Amino acid sequence: MSGEIPPAQPPPAPEQHGQDHPRPPLPLLWLWLWRRNPLRRRTDRLQGWVALGLLLLVPAPALVAMFGVGDTAYRHYRTTAEHQARIRHHTTAVLVHDAPGHLEPGSDEANGTRYPVTVRFTGPDGQARTAKTDVIPGLSAGSTVSVWVGADGTLTEPPLTVEEIRSRAMGWALVAFLAVVLAGGAVYGAVARVLRRRNLEAWDAMWAETAPHWSRAHGSPR
């Protein structure tokens, strides 16, 4: 059956702009860069090798940094706790006046509430001193509370506990691990930007060479 051949039609547009060739998930990006296809460039393969190399190399120094920094921090805070235990004095203080009462005595909120009250205590030099410390609600004047006194005779916090030492050391270890991982990610990002810029420069050079031939073959635009 003869008839007029219809003109060529452009390919159907995708449903959403930019969705005809979706980017692969980040964990599979380096595999996508190695995929065999006519458009793959040497820079794509190089970017894939960089991603794989960082994926294999970064965990080792990250773990070394985590354990090294964690151990250093643990020893530092343990030494600090021992020093605090030597210079801080645990003693008993007496309330000078009544502590405010809570509106809901015996409630969970009352149990977690503390009020600053003036107390009297004896400093390391044997002299009587007064200062403010936080106490539970409802204590009457003359009640006693336990306080820690520093070498200078002022009220201070108790020495670091084993749990606090371990928690702070683990925090620094985690920071060190994440810092190395983020550094690896920054290296990959820098390499990717350099390769992308190189690809754009190569594309501009190829188009500058091809554009005159394309214009002569298809005529000047109207």
Rank of each mutant, 00 (worst) to 15 (best):
M1R: 07
A8K: 07
A8M: 11
P11I: 07
P11T: 11
P14M: 06
Q16C: 06
Q19F: 10
D20Q: 10
H21T: 07
P22N: 05
R23F: 02
L26W: 15
L29I: 10
W30C: 11
W30V: 12
W32K: 12
L33A: 07
W34N: 10
R35T: 11
R35H: 11
R35G: 08
R35M: 07
R36M: 05
R42P: 05
T43I: 12
D44C: 02
R45Y: 03
L46W: 13
Q47V: 13
Q47H: 07
G48P: 04
L52E: 06
L52V: 10
L52I: 09
G53S: 11
L55R: 05
L55W: 07
L55A: 13
L55H: 06
L56P: 02
V58Y: 08
A60P: 04
A60S: 13
P61W: 06
A62R: 01
A65P: 02
M66Q: 06
V69P: 02
V69Y: 10
G70I: 04
D71L: 06
A73K: 01
Y77P: 01
T80Q: 15
H83P: 01
H83T: 13
Q84I: 07
A85Q: 09
R86K: 12
H90F: 14
H90P: 01
T91M: 01
V96H: 02
V96L: 11
H97F: 05
D98W: 03
A99Y: 00
A99C: 12
A99P: 02
A99V: 07
G101L: 02
G101T: 10
H102P: 01
L103N: 15
L103S: 15
L103P: 10
E104L: 05
D108W: 02
D108Q: 12
E109A: 12
A110D: 03
N111Q: 15
Y115H: 09
P116M: 10
T118I: 01
G123I: 07
G123C: 06
D125A: 09
G126C: 08
Q127T: 15
Q127W: 08
A128Y: 04
R129N: 08
T130D: 08
T130K: 12
T130C: 05
A131Q: 09
D134M: 07
V135N: 04
I136Q: 12
L139S: 03
A141N: 08
G142H: 05
S143M: 06
S146L: 06
S146M: 04
W148R: 09
V149I: 15
P158A: 04
P158F: 00
P158S: 04
L160P: 00
E163A: 15
E164A: 14
I165T: 12
R166A: 14
A169Y: 08
M170V: 03
W172K: 09
A173H: 08
A176M: 05
L178W: 05
A183R: 00
G184P: 05
G184K: 04
G185P: 00
A186G: 14
V187G: 03
Y188G: 11
Y188K: 10
G189C: 11
A190Q: 14
A192N: 12
L195Q: 10
W203V: 10
W207R: 05
A208F: 03
E209H: 11
T210N: 07
P212R: 09
R216I: 02
G219T: 09
S220K: 14
P221F: 12
